[in-house]
Amino acid sequence: MTATSSTAAGPTGLGNARIGVVTFPGTLDDRDTQRAIRLAGGEAVELWHRDKDLKQVDAVVLAGGFSYGDYLRAGAISRFSPVMEMIIEGARQGLPVLGICNGFQILTESHLLPGAMLRNNHLHFICRDQRLRVENADTAWTNSYEAGQEISIPLKNIDGRYVADERTLDELEAEGRVAFRYLGMNPNGSLRDIAGITNAAGNVVGLMPHPEHAVEPLIGTGRTDGLGFFTSVLKQLVSA
């Protein structure tokens, strides 16, 4: 597979920001993510799991799906792919990286984010619109939101239960690194209703629900609550 890129002059006129979207064998949501990036006004750049360079992208999204069939553990094998070595190095130097669903699992397996994802406590695959509260609106991927803002975006997974030891959870809370919390019924047994977290620097964010499926009024939730993730990073890149 060769990597190609596509450009769309977006409504915000930030069409020169290049956002990479990684495709592993088994990734499902890469196309939707590319589309969300274009709708937000960025340029979506395809990255393949075997790529050994990041094609000069300004940020990276690890999209949802079942990379490597979720064999061993969700995200465990993807974490050792050539493209991830580049991304892990970049993330440590400040490259904005967003992990959605399976992407979040890859980020915890890579130890770019603390904790781990486990099978939902009820053992069922869940697929529904999920209300969340944006707890931290200062990260590279959430600065278009207000702290405390409620959004609704789709949630679809079976390995969505966030766990970490008590000390790590306390640390995350104290440092404001719980980025998103589930509202209403906890859908999977995630500790402290955590739906997503950020690293200390705010450039690496992971969450289980899917913002890329809520970017157009005609499909998904019927709202565009997810678009802010992608406008956030574009805003961040312009002001950087």
């Binding site: 486990l118 099978r119 939902n120 406590n121 009820h122 053992l123 239960r161 766990v163 030891d165 047994g189």
Partner: peptide, 13 residues
Amino acid sequence: MLKPEILDPQGQA
């Protein structure tokens, strides 16, 4: 094995 303090819903089932 999952650590003892980690909930194992598969084992429970």
